[in-house]
Design a protein around this nucleic acid. Structure first.
Lengths: 195, 195
DNA sequence: GTCTATATGAAGATAGAC
DNA sequence: GTCTATCTTCATATAGAC
């Protein structure tokens, strides 16, 4: 399909998403206007509507892409091993994946209430799937006898909350390297759920 | 000082704050208009400016009050004992205090980026003070030999993130009572930082 | 695909009457 | 203290020219 003269859809489209991602993360979805996004991209506000039907779809697409990327990356990880080995892999994967995408993670947590009910249900379903992966590991570990937690569902949420907290303070080039951070958190997770 | 006929300052003031708290928590600061707050209170928008100089001050007052309430409540708690005893007291206090104020806690975490730089610095200072209380306990425990963490500062942030996560799922009348939740989290915290 | 221009509505905040 | 009315700015989204 030949492109119209002056067309830049294959470059402008990604730029719209990148600008929206950065601005939503910094100022919040509700506080960012389509005009601000357009200015960042270098087009007029009306041109954005060639790439998204509306502002809500822009937010939803960012969040959905982030969550499906997360699920896909996890599926690509090596599987198998003992529950303890799988828990270590999950812990390190979670920290690595999330610390590499601070804007996406921030939006995924902060902007849930700005989704329409239908869009919220989709994102919530993906989040639940991810939690279930960890819950299965904790469950298996207790069956094996290598792990022991007072409540499997609560422990799942507690571990994820602890690990995602890395994003509130970790910065590349700080006191600790990412590898050291992984090790510190893995030490605490391991002890917290050990039999 | 005699009140003007028709004055309701002693009742309207708190109602403005209550309405703002609830609306900010539900929809976010940027998404809530002064007109919405006024409607909830039952006055016209202009009347709100008898109680706050602007919308920003309303947000800042809510956050500052929450943080000073937190510091004051912690000061009222019994002190002393071993590091392990103090850690248990901190854990249970944190869960009890935060689960009783879901709206305040939500705003305190989600609306930091909507504060002016000056206001942000104030809230950030109070948050830091609170973190320091936990860090001291972990430090003392390691001096005593009862606790051991791979990194004291990171462990402080990890424990707080884990505990504050309670607010994302706990609801009164659910599967677990608040006392049971306290016990579940205390079990995990204790193991995570034990020597 | 992008532009200019615009329709339509709502935002924060203030002025002055009661 | 509260009201109505208003100033001024900005919002999302669309229409039609190029």
């Amino acid at each position: 399909m030949a492109r119209t003269a002056g067309s830049h859809s294959d470059i402008t489209g990604p730029r719209v998403r990148t600008a929206a991602l950065s601005l939503f993360a910094r100022h919040g979805y509700a506080a960012v206007s389509m005009r601000q996004i357009a200015r960042e991209v270098g087009v007029q506000a009306g041109a954005l509507y060639n790439y998204t039907p509306d502002k809500q779809s822009l937010l939803f697409d960012l969040m959905q892409t982030h969550m499906t990327d997360l699920m896909a990356a996890r599926t690509d990880e090596p599987t198998g091993g003992t529950a303890l080995e799988r828990l270590e892999a999950f812990t390190r994967f979670h920290i690595r994946f999330h610390s590499a995408r601070p804007d996406e993670v921030f939006i995924a947590y902060m902007e849930l209430r700005n989704l329409t009910p239908e869009n919220f249900a989709v994102i919530e379903g993906l989040r639940r799937q991810y939690e279930d992966a960890l819950e299965s590991i904790l469950q298996d570990g207790q069956t094996e006898g290598s792990l022991a937690v007072p409540d499997t569902k609560v422990a799942t949420l507690a571990v994820i909350a602890m690990l995602t907290g890395v994003n509130t303070w970790f910065r590349e080039g700080g006191r600790l390297s990412l590898g050291e951070v992984e090790q510190v958190y893995w030490d605490m997770v391991r002890k917290a759920v050990a039999a």
